[in-house]
């Protein structure tokens, strides 16, 4: 698991003011719990000063919602705001990649 002590490095972006995040899970699986815990931690540490709202959608209870956001993999984190929409699939255990996925950090490991 990656740690998150590198916020001071180059490539850090200033967080936007408004955040709307949706976490899609299917039941209370271990992956779902891990994703939620990881997400909360990342938000607390990296979205301070911004307003963020996390909505958890359990597809076992609301299957009809999977279609709208084109959910195939779970867990999927969807960044609804700020635009553009971004999707991060998995249990969010790799903080570095989550930050890249949320556009909080520039991609440093890919060309």
């Amino acid at each position: 698991m990656a740690n998150n002590n590198s916020t001071q490095e180059n490539g850090v972006k200033r967080p936007e003011k408004e955040w709307e995040l949706r976490l899609y899970v299917a039941g209370q699986s271990a992956k779902a719990m891990a994703a939620f815990t990881n997400l909360k931690k990342i938000c607390e540490e990296h979205l301070e000063g911004g307003q963020y709202h996390i909505e958890i959608i359990d597809l076992l209870k609301q299957p009809q919602l999977a279609r709208g956001d084109q959910i195939v993999a779970v867990p999927t984190l969807v960044r609804k705001l700020p635009a553009p929409v971004r999707k991060i699939i998995g249990d969010l255990s790799n903080t570095e990649r989550v930050l890249v996925g949320l556009d909080l950090r520039q991609r440093s490991y890919a060309p």
Partner: peptide
């Protein structure tokens, strides 16, 4: 009919996942 579209460009992968979403949609 359900049209499943995944744009690889907008997807970041981090950690474990499965395709339960597909099952849920198909079941729906």
């Amino acid at each position: 009919i359900d049209y499943v579209h995944i744009d690889r460009q907008e997807i970041e992968e981090t950690g474990e996942y499965d395709l339960e979403g597909l099952f849920v949609r198909l079941a729906a």
